[in-house]
Design a protein around this nucleic acid. Sequence first.
DNA 1: TAGTGGTCTAGACCACACG
DNA 2: GTGTGGTCTAGACCACTAT
Lengths: 241, 241
Amino acid sequence: MPADQTPDPSGGDKISFRDVKAEIRRRIERRIWGPGDLVPGEIDLAEDFGCARATVNRAMRELTEEGLLERKRKAGTRVRAMPLRQARFEIPLVRAEITAMGAAYHYALLSTQTVPAPDWLRDRLGLRAGARALHLRCLHSADGRPYQFEDRWINLQALPQAETADFALQGPNEWLVQAVPYSEVEISFLAAAATVDVAAALGIEPGEPTFTAERTTWWQSRAITHVRLSFARGYRMTTRY
Amino acid sequence: MPADQTPDPSGGDKISFRDVKAEIRRRIERRIWGPGDLVPGEIDLAEDFGCARATVNRAMRELTEEGLLERKRKAGTRVRAMPLRQARFEIPLVRAEITAMGAAYHYALLSTQTVPAPDWLRDRLGLRAGARALHLRCLHSADGRPYQFEDRWINLQALPQAETADFALQGPNEWLVQAVPYSEVEISFLAAAATVDVAAALGIEPGEPTFTAERTTWWQSRAITHVRLSFARGYRMTTRY
DNA sequence: TAGTGGTCTAGACCACACG
DNA sequence: GTGTGGTCTAGACCACTAT
C-alpha cells in the first residue's frame, strides 16, 4: 500500500481535519480530482481517511469557504471549475498601521465645522432635508511625513455627542470605535486625482493619482459616518492568499 | 427569568450555533460584554444557552475568525478591544466581472513577445540571469468600451508550454487557471498615473489616475506569472462587512 | 498544576434538492 | 422518495499557558 494514502506523516495517532484538508488540496492540485469533478461523499472519505465524518465535514466546509469546493445537498461536492479567488484585507486604524511600520505616528485636526449636510451626503446616509452634520478634516503622519488625509462627516442626528467631543487630540476614527463598536460597513477603493485640498495636505501636486478609500458606516440600520481617506504617494494595499 | 436569556425566539427546539453567535453579537453590541472584557467559558455558556459545548465552540470560533473575539487557552475568551476590521474581496475573472454587470465581454490580444526577462521581473520572480519570459498585452472590454488593460509576464522556465499556446482567442488568465490551478498569490492595489501605453489602450489621457492591481503567482514555490491590471476611469472595488 | 480552548468520535436527526 | 450535506450531542482526550 502506498505510503501517501494516509496523510499525517508525523506518526501522530489521530487524523486531524488539517490533514484531511491538506490531502484534499493535494489531490486537487495534482488533478487527481480535476476542475468540475464530483468528489466522494463525506462517508466514503471518512472511511478512506480513517476518521469520523465530522472531521471530513469540517475540512470540506473550510475548503468550500476558501473557494476550492462547491457543495450542494444531494448533488454532492465538486471541485470548483473556476476557483473563487478572494483576498482578505485587514483594515487597521491608521495609528496601528503607522506604528507597525516602526514610524512615529502624529495626528492633526485641520478643521471642524457643523453644517447642513450637503445633498450627496444626505443621499448617501439617508438623512432628511436640513439635517446637520459634523465635518472634520484631519491629517495622519508617519515620522513627520503626511501619510493619510481624512475627510469625515458624522451624522449628528444619530450621534449628537459627537458635536461636543474634542477631536484635537484623538482622531475621529478612534473616538468612533469607542462610541459605536462593531458596525456595518461598506468600503470602496479607487484611484482619484488629488483635489487642491488633498494635495495641499499631503504635499503633492493637484491632479496626482491618489489611492483612496471611502467608507460608510451604519449602526443598527442608522448611518453614522462617511469618510474619504486619501493616501500619500506610493501607497499600496497588499495581501497574499 | 428574563425572556431573552434564551435565544431562538422562533420556537424551534434546538439551539443552533447561529443563535449563539447572534446572541453573543447582541451582548457585545449592547455592551453587556464590553471591549476587553472576559467572556464566560464555553461550558458555562453551553449551560446558559442549553446546548452542547461544541455548539458554543463553533459560534465562538467563527466570531473569533470574524475579528470580534480573542481566545487563548487557559486565559479564556475576551471581546477584542480594537475590533479587527477586515474586508473580503472577490477577485473574479474579468470575463465573469463584465458579464455579471450584464455587459458584453470582449477580449483582444494587443501584443505578444518572447524576450529576456528585464531586471525588475527577474528580481520579482526570482529568475536567473538570461531567463526568457513571455510578455503579453491584452485589452478586456465591456459593451465595446475598454474596461481593463492587462500587461502580463509569464515565466517560460516554469511554464514552457505557454510559448506555444494561442492567446488570440483565450485570455492568458483563463489559460493559466486551467494550466496551473490553485496557486499561491500576492496581490497589491494602488493608484498609478496612466502611462502612454495604458492611456492609449483605455482611451484616457496619459497621467490620468488609474486603479491598478499587481498580482504575482507561484505554484509549488516557483514563480509562474506577474501581471499588472489597469482599470478604466471610474473603477471602484467595493465590499461590505 | 490546573483551567481553558481545541479537536475527534460515534451516533442521530433534519433539510434540501435531484430524479 | 432518497441520498447528500448540515448540524447537534455527549463524552473524551489533548495542548497550551497562566499562575
